[in-house]
Design a binder for these strands. Structure first.
Length: 458
RNA sequence: GCCGCCAUCGUCUAACGGCCAGGACGCGGCCCUUUCAAGGCUGAAAUCGGAGUUCGAUUCUCCGUGGCGGCACCA
């Protein structure tokens, strides 16, 4: 396989959009399919407002979390101004581009007179007041975008404006800068969002004027929220940083993102990274927009959590807890707690919610208390359980199960009827990990203390 | 307004022009059970509309409709 060069070009807003993450992932998978291939990271950061160093750092941090590395870069557009000026001068000298004083208003009026045809300006001397540089678009012919995913899309030249490629002060505009970079960096494949499809003929025109070869293009379908609108804050998580904070595992996010717009066969849902690299292909990417479904991501995340050993999972949640500054990250019981709760959680946040009773002061859920403690015999059950627990030695799951089941028999009640009040007494809620694990985690002293407090509060 | 892209269960998707349109999430039911889950079994659920090509169309062509994107001295 010959060497290809892919590129990923996020806009550093400090916010790695889920769609952008998927684009990065696809480029990364393609680049990793051959040791000869290279992935170039190019940052679109000439917008100084949004592209602070901190914003750039956040994008890089998000990519690192997803474990998407690159071979060259990051190249910042803002640092390549000399190169753009050089190429611009060439186009001006050859007549492929020209200075024009027309404003947006002027262009609008001119177009009204010409019907639907594109705007054509009048060249003036360079440096004229308010003049910007436009690329000369031929009146005849078409530019055809060849897209791996979509086939051919023709764009008639007569309908395209002579578009601005550099501002009055000579600074380059996106469609020009990106073409210069793709050419300089030897990019062979441009894989990006479908929102760029209409920009492609402009970039192709610049590339042609520069005498550069066109890369192979692939435009991915866009991502939407459940209401069919473009993904945004309103839909919950919209960035990979938010996904990380919500307690998703990197491998689950990666697997889910890969499947948003791509499918391998009739039945396969789970892919390891190596399988993804081996099986991914642009030809199988879907053409229609996909809806980001956090429900399915949650399900998939639960699957990945259960695939980790308790020790590995404890390591993951430890990092997550530290990031969120939650108590218990260094508690020796963490792994034991994780082992008891892993079947019940879909995210690290869920998992923490199930084990927090062991690391935080008791927080009573009043509705749970009212519902369970008002039942007949709650007090007797708690007292009998307390006595049985006091005699349990060692205070481990086996002993606790034997002791409590015996109490249930003596009381002639179903085990669940005995366990619920104990659960509420020691965790404050009706839902928790198994009752024996819960008590063992808490230890004899804390368990008895909490049960005593509950009896006293009845 | 102009240009372009897209169209299979609610959602993600699968189906050399040819088996009851398959799988997954979610939803319903059953089993298991210590609450909640997880797990197993199971049910309902889709080819946007209209022409055309063809023995045969989810698949190819055209029209319509709808959704989205682009038309900046933003990226």
């Amino acid at each position: 396989m010959s060497a290809h060069r892919f590129r990923f070009a996020p806009s550093p807003t400090g916010f790695l959009h889920i769609g952008g993450a998927r684009t990065a992932l696809y480029n990364w998978l393609l680049a990793r399919q051959s040791p000869e291939h290279r992935l170039v990271l190019r940052l679109e950061d000439t917008d100084r407002e949004r592209s602070t160093d901190e914003a750039v750092a956040q994008i890089l941090d998000a990519l690192e979390w997803l474990e998407l590395d690159w071979d060259e870069g990051p190249f910042r557009q803002a640092e390549r101004s000399d190169r753009y000026a050089e190429r611009l001068a060439e186009l001006l000298a050859s007549g492929a581009a020209y200075w024009d004083v027309a404003t947006a208003e002027d262009v609008k009026h001119a177009k009204q007179e010409r019907g639907d045809a594109g705007y054509r300006g009048e060249a003036v001397q360079g440096g004229a007041e308010g003049a910007a540089v436009r690329l000369r678009v031929p009146d005849e012919g078409v530019t055809v975008v060849h897209d791996v995913i979509r086939g051919e899309s023709p764009f008639e030249h007569r309908l395209l404006d002579d578009f601005v490629i550099a501002r009055a002060d000579g600074t380059p505009l996106y469609n020009f800068a990106v073409a210069v970079d793709d050419s300089d960096m030897g990019i062979t494949h441009v894989v990006r969002g479908e929102d760029h499809l209409s920009n492609t003929p402009r970039q192709l025109l610049v590339l042609g004027a520069l005498g550069a070869a066109a890369p192979i293009y692939a435009h991915l379908p866009l991502l939407h929220g459940t209401d069919g609108r473009p993904l945004s804050k309103r839909h919950g998580a919209a960035s990979v940083q938010e996904l990380r904070d919500a307690g998703y595992l990197q491998e689950a996010v990666r697997n889910y993102l890969a499947l948003l717009g791509w499918g391998y066969d009739e039945t396969t849902t789970f892919f390891s990274t190596d399988e993804l690299i081996g099986k991914f292909s642009l030809e199988r990417v879907s053409r229609s927009p996909a809806v980001f479904d956090e429900q399915k991501l949650r399900w998939m995340n639960g699957h990945y959590m259960r695939e980790l050993s308790p020790a590995e999972l404890a390591e993951r949640i430890r990092d997550w807890m530290r990031r969120a500054a939650l108590p218990g990250a260094d508690d020796p019981r963490l792994e034991q707690a994780v082992a008891a709760a892993r079947e019940k959680a879909q995210t690290l946040a869920d998992l923490y919610d199930l084990i927090r009773f062991a690391f935080e002061p008791l927080a009573r859920d009043e509705s749970a208390w009212a519902k369970v403690m008002s039942k007949d015999g709650a007090q007797e059950k708690l007292e009998r359980a307390r006595d049985a627990l006091a005699g349990a030695e060692p205070f481990d799951e086996q002993q606790l199960e034997m002791a409590l089941r015996r109490v249930a028999e003596d009381l002639d009640v179903k085990p669940g009827a005995l366990f619920q009040p104990i659960r509420v007494a020691v965790t404050g809620r009706t839902v928790s990990v198994g009752i024996f694990e819960t008590l063992a985690l808490l230890g004899k002293e804390e368990s008895l203390g909490r049960i005593d407090a509950a009896i006293a509060a009845l």
